[in-house]
Amino acid sequence: DHDVVPEDKFQETLHLKEKEGCPQAFHALLSWLLTQDSTAILDFWRVLFKDYNLERYGRLQPILDSFPKDVDLSQPRKGRKPPAVPKALVPPPRLPTKRKASEEARAAAPAALTPRGTASPGSQLKAKPPKKPESSAEQQRLPLGNGIQTMSASVQRAVAMSSGDVPGARGAVEGILIQQVFESGGSKKCIQVGGEFYTPSKFEDSGSGKNKARSSSGPKPLVRAKGAQGAAPGGGEARLGQQGSVPAPLALPSDPQLHQKNEDECAVCRDGGELICCDGCPRAFHLACLSPPLREIPSGTWRCSSCLQATVQEVQPRAEEPRPQEPPVETPLPPGLRSAGEEVRGPPGEPLAGMDTTLVYKHLPAPPSAAPLPGLDSSALHPLLCVGPEGQQNLAPGARCGVCGDGTDVLRCTHCAAAFHWRCHFPAGTSRPGTGLRCRSCSGDVTPAPVEGVLAPSPARLAPGPAKDDTASHEPALHRDDLESLLSEHTFDGILQWAIQSMARPAAPFPS
């Protein structure tokens, strides 16, 4: 592969990997390779389809078979030569091979799209000592099968071997295949498990690692696999990028399955594409389908809103127990993405979901129960707010008499603000006073009005108090039968009158 990737590009890729991570280095090298001529790309395919690569990765054979028959990708048995050289000459001794072996032994695996480039050397060096003999053996194999790289107009793939297949390693990572398949204008990513390549439709969760975000852009890794992070704060999961590491605690105790298979379609829109997988259930989501939507993949363990709600429900009964003089119970939860139609709101002032922060849900004790107040519409209280300059209440639009249902020339009671006709409430011909108009209920007259088809109010509507207090003497005590009587009149003013009279009014101040 030294004929494909020059030394300066190799060093530039290593520097970019240390600065921005393996995914960015892979993407940059792939983009550079696509700008080369067809001879360089053909050399790339020839390096990929060597015999030892085909033996190690069985899924490469179907890719090789898909090439046109007129494309010669065979390799000479006596060494490598550029395709432009007409004579089959043995190339001179390859010093770059020693360079590659020494550099890969030092860096474990470079971040390139060629056999030198995919593992994360920093994480491997940190986690190597417990498994040094086995990992050293794996390093000797890295130059042979560490990076199976493929690129063409139909298929483009980048393979990364790992030393996680050490025997006896619980939940060992089998390997990473960062794979971009450009077929019919689409893009897919796969993962390699035990020599087999699994596409998103049959993606397997190998051991402790999972394909957290099938994305090839942005600074985030394709698999949430930063070796420096180790395990999740809650004892979460091992990262795919942690090559040759000792077994780590796999999943939280509440995880239903340690080796679950995540779905390959969004649980909201039932469509495929780039998904984020939940650590607590097999569901996966688009970032845009979450509520609120996320802009980037959160670091650490992530769970959907259903799993978060289940966790909150487990903690909430203990938080609601009476604990005198104790601060509110704080339950730190990872930043969760909410699927459509589901929402768990945190306290005000918290950062938005999706940031690399930890939301704190506070379970406050329930407030003391209070008697429910009568629910009145805002339009129902409008007549009470229509007060004239002299303190006389004006008529609201649409006000109707509670007896006849007519809204023409209605009066407004100064005591309960109900609309009424003087002739309907006082049919006996009582003279109307000039000021202080009161309806039949507030004036103490319980004589029913002779209106055909309208039920008369119940005599129990009024329960006047002592006459010594004029204001308190007109406080009506309405009961269920009074409400039914008012409802039978089918008037809004009657219902409003009952609601206003049912509310307690402050006692009249004593004259000074």
Rank of each mutant, 00 (worst) to 15 (best):
S458H: 14
L395M: 14
V451E: 05
R400A: 04
F420R: 02
Q392E: 05
G436A: 04
P448T: 06
S378N: 10
T331M: 15
D279I: 06
A428Y: 12
S339T: 09
L486T: 03
A310G: 09
A507L: 09
E320L: 12
P448R: 09
Q243G: 14
H415A: 06
Q497H: 13
T491H: 01
Q325M: 12
P383G: 09
V446P: 09
T435Q: 13
L352D: 01
G434L: 15
C278F: 08
G241D: 12
V446C: 12
P383M: 15
P389N: 12
Q325R: 12
F285C: 14
L462M: 02
S305H: 13
L258Q: 08
I500G: 03
G391M: 03
Q257E: 06
R438K: 09
D445E: 11
C386N: 03
W302A: 14
P466R: 07
A507S: 10
W302N: 06
A507R: 02
D356V: 03
V344Q: 08
D481C: 03
T358D: 08
P328W: 14
T301R: 11
D445P: 07
P324T: 11
M355I: 09
D409S: 07
P464H: 08
R295Q: 06
V329C: 09
P293T: 09
A370R: 08
E475R: 02
A251G: 10
P298W: 13
A504T: 14
L373K: 05
L437Q: 11
P335I: 13
H490V: 08
A456K: 06
T331L: 13
V329H: 07
H479F: 13
G429D: 06
L373V: 08
A477P: 14
V454N: 03
E452H: 05
L250M: 14
S369T: 09
F420S: 02
P348M: 11
D469C: 08
D481S: 03
E330A: 11
L287Q: 08
T408D: 02
H425S: 02
S443Q: 02
E320Q: 12
N394P: 12
A499I: 04
K261C: 10
S254E: 07
Q243A: 12
G398I: 14
A399W: 15
L437T: 05
C439D: 00
P332N: 04
W498D: 03
D481K: 01
A366R: 07
F492D: 02
E265P: 06
P322F: 10
V268S: 10
E330G: 10
D470S: 08
H363D: 02
G336K: 14
A472G: 03
G280W: 13
L258F: 12
C424I: 01
T471R: 09
Q392H: 14
R480G: 01
E350K: 04
G346K: 12
A419M: 04
G244H: 09
G444T: 00
D356T: 13
P298E: 09
L294M: 14
L381A: 15
T331V: 09
P327Y: 13
V446E: 14
A396R: 08
A366M: 13
G407K: 05
D481G: 03
A449F: 01
R461M: 05
S339N: 13
A248M: 04
P433A: 07
G405N: 09
P365G: 12
P317A: 12
L275P: 09
L252H: 06
K362M: 15
G244P: 05
L384K: 08
A508D: 04
A449V: 13
F426G: 08
G349D: 08
P282T: 08
D481Y: 03
A419H: 07
A248F: 15
T491W: 05
D271Y: 07
E475C: 08
P298L: 08
P247Q: 12
P448C: 06
S305R: 13
D377A: 11
A319I: 11
Q501A: 15
L395K: 07
V246L: 10
F285N: 14
A418T: 05
A499D: 02
E390T: 06
V451Q: 15
V410Y: 08
E274Q: 10
P374A: 09
S245G: 14
S369A: 11
S291A: 14
A319K: 10
F420Y: 03
H479T: 06
F492V: 05
L287H: 08
A504H: 07
P332G: 04
E350L: 13
L384P: 07
P334G: 02
P322W: 14
S458W: 10
V312D: 10
L437P: 08
H479Q: 03
P335K: 14
C269H: 06
L395N: 11
Q313H: 14
V410I: 09
S502W: 03
V360L: 13
V451Y: 09
G272K: 11
T430L: 11
E343R: 11
D377L: 11
A463T: 07
P332W: 15
T311M: 14
P367N: 05
P293I: 11
P317L: 12
P372F: 10
V329L: 10
V446T: 09
P327N: 10
E484L: 02
A507G: 10
